[in-house]
Design a protein around this nucleic acid. Structure first.
Lengths: 240, 240
DNA sequence: GAGTGGTCTAGACCACTAG
DNA sequence: TAGTGGTCTAGACCACTCC
């Protein structure tokens, strides 16, 4: 663990445990540097992390302050696996299970080539999964992934989590994603699996997900029941 | 303009103008530091900015590379005013006009106090606007804002942009927002103004927007016609 | 092993806030 | 004017990649 991350973690814990008076600024950077036996630059990097998380904010010439709803915000992280930051209660209780509707390999069309930055001759997986949350219909997910980027996908992996396979078995890490969110009328597949009527909207998320080396590995379209959780987006600027 | 931002800008321009060979890494940090007559740390800060923008990525021990779809990505910014990153074509052509449906001042309820971090005795604006894009029904926006944070709002301001007033006239800057996105069935107001039928879903965004001093100033609920643009979310990790 | 990015230091000066 | 965060330097060592 690098130093600045470890320091950030310690300060984060102090804030969460209310060891700092939230009505006053944190100790200044100089003092923190002395306390942690490090240089000011390292403290700045640590504070930066917390500032990105939305836990604190700095005001030049004044000090570094704890954001009032720091605790609320610190929960709002969204990983791609559960990118739908399904509301907290769901996150806590929920068990997700998957039914594989389709699992094929084929060549990509032009749009897919462009989105995944591959050529027409590079095969892709074409996966459709129906997912349930606590046995209730939750979403339908259409996913394509280049075979050469994410090799050896099996049905067993699809039953669980593709992301865990990518992370734990392939040792790859994700950089992030580009998402496009919209509402739509339900199509036949939606009505069949999500058990919704013609009047029940679906929430659609189309995303391209990238590895940390900049290679896109997933292009997917996910359709949610409108009453099963919403999407949380935290969008904070950062300082450098 | 600080040095590292200026350097980032220059490198960004070179990338966009294809002055660097995208198939090879950028010059290493040492070389860039020498070229720009600065230290390596400053170059790192500049590259960091570009990395956050998604234009480049670094691989330890290897080099700094241009992301292949760099140009695409660099367009995907989302300001809060137009937080609905209405798809590009709309962004380009669109003219937004507003009709004020309601504009009142009242005391907040408990939920509103909590979201805006104010007390029950601090009055708020309560605004409902119907907004059109190129004369077509686009969205309905319910907004509340604390009067003491954003004083002197007038109907004239509401006709244009609240955000421009906040930025230009009040001299305040936004830090960001917390958004919650979902699909919903249309209610009566939606059907009346957005001209949608019972089967046309709406896309709802509930957001709390913050100033850069950490004070929330807006709590709003916006309901969109489902066929008028979607929401773009770029969610990239950054280093440090 | 050579080259490159990641982290860290100690110290300096500047920009801004607030009393 | 004193105190605080923001930027910057020059140099060091480490971690990792790739040959």
């Amino acid at each position: 663990m690098v130093k600045y991350k470890s320091i950030a973690e310690q300060i984060r814990n102090r804030i969460i445990n209310k060891e700092y008076d939230a009505s006053k600024p944190l100790p200044d950077q100089e003092k923190l540097a002395k306390e942690f036996g490090t240089s000011r630059v390292t403290i700045i990097k640590a504070l930066n992390l917390l500032s990105i998380e939305g836990l604190i904010y700095s005001k030049q010439g004044s000090g570094t302050y704890i954001r009032k709803n720091a605790l609320q915000m610190s929960k709002l992280d969204s990983r791609a696996d559960e990118y739908v930051g399904v509301t907290e209660q769901i996150k806590g209780n929920g068990k997700i299970s998957s039914v594989i509707i389709a699992f094929n390999v084929r060549f990509p069309n032009e749009d897919e080539c462009e989105k995944l930055m591959i050529t027409k001759s590079q095969p892709i997986y074409d996966i459709v999964r129906f997912r349930l949350l606590n046995e209730e219909p939750f979403l339908i997910e259409h996913t394509i992934m280049p075979v050469h980027v994410i090799p050896n996908i099996t049905e067993e992996i699809l039953q669980k989590s593709i992301y865990q396979y990518i992370k734990n078995d392939l040792g790859l890490t994700m950089l992030g994603a580009n998402r496009r969110i919209r509402a739509d009328q339900p199509d036949e597949l939606d009505q069949q699996y999500l058990k919704c009527t013609e009047r029940d909207p679906v929430l659609e998320v189309i995303q391209v997900v990238y590895l940390d080396n900049g290679v896109p590995f997933e292009y997917s379209r996910t359709r949610h029941r409108y009453d099963m959780g919403d999407i949380l987006v935290v969008d904070m600027k950062y300082k450098n």
